[in-house]
């Protein structure tokens, strides 16, 4: 008889929690000037990474991050059994082309900036389900390739709104295995697409906050946990505006994640770095997780982390047609054994 691993409406439990055995994180120059410089594996000197376009640089960023995560365990690239990756560019070219070079069996994902959580939770399912022994979950974003796809030409003089966010140039990769040393992925909550009618592409945090709150609420309801169970709950890239909105919504929903609640978009940069409301992009939550957060788990500063990456699932075409911005968030619980 099949036993289902789902609990409640949206949450899945892993019977044999997959182990995060190694991880890596490469970031761009601006992220390297932020408060977490010492926690990243490598800081790029410029945005081109010895390539001739930003798109190619982004592909290389992802590729090198995946390689580095495997190398940390003395693994060859070919020893990875499956790559789960996605990014922000049309047709997820960064991931597709990185997978071409890496030559690892590959499933491409699109969850916008929620991809780190999406790839991590699918990877954990693949391993707990007994399909694979070693899966790499990865994502990346590049400030200038995203800027030209979603906003204005880079050299155009544009005054940004205070609620606008800065797409991070960063990639994160996590190696999941059946056995090993490291924090474990214990359960995950798959989010619904929530659209509360925000149509301002300069205020993505506001578009995603309701999705983040919905997923966190579902997670606690499904698991029957107290809100102080986790040492830290981080959302992906709500930024300052979205985080304030999330806090208001938590109160409305009767949830109390504070004071253990924060947001990667708020954490990634210093207030003085000219990023307005904070960071965004797939690389924002990926670099915070694969940089400082997992390091803190290894140090024992954190033992239970709920990582809630958030994504805005819009496209310029849909925006021009007057569509509002749907948001999504997936929660992944990472705990020390």
């Amino acid at each position: 008889m099949t036993t289902f691993k789902k609990t409640g409406m949206q949450t899945i439990n892993f019977d044999n929690p997959p182990v995060i055995t190694s991880w890596a994180c490469l970031v761009g120059p601006k992220e390297g000037e932020g408060p977490w410089a010492k926690d990243f594996d490598r800081i790029l000197a410029d945005y081109l990474f010895d390539e001739d376009s930003w798109e190619k640089a982004e592909n290389k960023l992802l590729r090198e991050t995946v390689k580095l995560a495997l190398t940390k365990q003395d693994l060859q690239t070919m020893e990875a059994e499956l790559l789960l990756a996605g990014d922000l560019l049309n047709q997820t070219i960064s991931s597709n082309y990185a997978a071409r070079e890496l030559n690892i069996p590959y499933l491409g994902l699109y969850g916008a900036c929620s991809t780190m959580a999406e790839s991590l939770l699918i990877g954990a399912m693949m391993i707990d389900g007994g399909f694979f022994n070693r899966v790499v979950s990865a994502t990346c974003s590049h400030h200038y390739s995203a800027e030209r796809q979603f906003r204005f030409p880079v050299e155009q003089g544009v005054q940004l709104a205070a609620s606008a966010q800065w797409t991070a140039t960063a990639a994160g990769a996590i190696v999941l295995q059946v056995k090993g040393q490291g924090p474990r992925v214990t359960c995950a909550t798959i989010g619904r697409v929530i659209d509360m009618g925000v149509d301002d592409t300069n205020n993505m945090g506001a578009a995603m906050a309701p999705a983040a709150v919905s997923t966190i609420k579902a997670h606690f309801a499904d698991k029957g946990l107290n809100s102080d169970y986790y040492d830290l709950i981080v959302t992906g890239d709500l930024g300052a505006v979205g985080m304030n909105l999330a806090k208001e919504l938590f109160v409305q929903e009767g949830l109390v994640p504070a004071p253990n609640y924060s947001d990667c978009g708020v954490l990634l940069y210093d207030g003085l770095q000219g990023v307005n409301a904070g960071g965004s992009g797939c690389g924002c939550s990926a670099s915070m997780l694969c940089g400082p957060l997992l390091k803190k788990m290894i140090n024992g500063e954190l033992n239970r982390l709920l990582f809630v990456a958030t994504g805005a699932l819009m496209s310029p075409t849909a925006s021009f047609q007057g569509e509002t911005i749907p948001g999504i968030a997936h929660a992944v619980a990472i705990e020390n054994a």
Binding site: F152, V158, D200, N202
Partner: peptide, 11 residues
Amino acid sequence: AMDLTKHSITP
């Protein structure tokens, strides 16, 4: 015109 109207007014 940009600051007082809807956010969708671009350059």
